[in-house]
Simulated assay, not measured.
Amino acid sequence: MTGLTNLKYYYFDLGTQGRGEPARLLLHDADVSFEDIRIEFKDWLAFKNEIIEDYPAAALPLVKTGDGEYYGLTAPLMRFLGQQLGYDAVDKKKSHFVDQTADFVSDWFQDCIRIFFQPDQQEVHDKNLKGIHCGRMERMYGRYNEGPYLLGEQITYADFMVYAAMRQDKVLGSLLEKDMPNLFKFVQAFENRKNLKEYITSLPTDEPQIVIPVE
């Protein structure tokens, strides 16, 4: 295992919205301590200039390890954490399937984040896109349906991304077993994981819509 000690985790100060929550969920589940650093937008450029020489991607979310290494961007970071902490697939075929799902979730996050900049598109999103993303995930979770997670009984890094996207898109409260049995089963199992239950319960039930002015 790469030195996952004295971790510093950086993302914008958006509560649980945006792309920052999947890694928090995974680290809590793995019982890995980390410093959760929320960056205000006004401080982003200075921070970016500070890290860009050592971390050319210069994008969030980002983990800095105790030995000074940087690992970032949502899916690559989650894949790295999964490999280091035992949340990866056991064979190449399943690993590819997990990566596919993570790619789909990245699209879902992007659609949600677009509303930060175009809040007038919320109704269009709810009417046209939310159902597409949920239906896609219901299908993916039906592939290995002997267990509640994407690969059945084995939880992987993509499961944390899926739950975070569902939470951000306010799907959890309206999820019905008769409509999406695979996702319903997944959420029930995920929210009752030993190291996640207390953390999830502590999260706000209703966060204000993020609006980022476009200059």
Results as ranks from 00 to 15, higher is better:
Q83T: 01
L26W: 02
D99F: 11
Q154G: 04
G86R: 04
Q121M: 13
K178E: 15
A30V: 03
G86Y: 04
N145H: 09
P148C: 08
R193L: 03
D67W: 10
T101E: 01
H133V: 06
C112E: 12
P204N: 14
E53S: 14
T2C: 09
A57F: 12
E153G: 04
K127H: 11
D36S: 10
G86D: 05
F12M: 10
A189I: 02
K48F: 06
G173H: 09
Y71G: 01
K178P: 00
I37H: 06
P56I: 03
Q121A: 15
I39W: 07
Y144L: 07
R19Y: 06
Q168L: 06
E53Q: 14
D31Q: 09
L203N: 04
I51H: 02
I210H: 01
D43T: 09
E146P: 03
D107G: 10
I212E: 05
I37A: 11
D91Q: 05
D103Q: 15
M78F: 11
L7P: 02
D107S: 11
L151I: 03
G152I: 02
A164C: 05
D29H: 11
I113G: 04
M180V: 07
Y71I: 09
F41T: 12
D179W: 15
I200M: 00
W108M: 08
D13K: 07
R139I: 13
S33W: 07
G82Y: 01
F117V: 09
L4N: 00
H125A: 15
T5E: 11
K178V: 11
E215V: 14
D88L: 01
D88N: 10
K185E: 11
N128R: 15
Y10E: 05
I51K: 00
I115G: 00
F160C: 01
Q121I: 07
F184E: 05
R136N: 12
G147L: 04
L62G: 03
P213H: 12
N145L: 07
Y70E: 05
L81P: 00
G68D: 10
Y87L: 00
V211Q: 08
L60Q: 06
D99Y: 10
E69N: 15
L183V: 04
F41I: 14
M137F: 10
Y157S: 06
K194V: 10
E138K: 12
Y9C: 03
F47D: 09
V214K: 13
L77T: 04
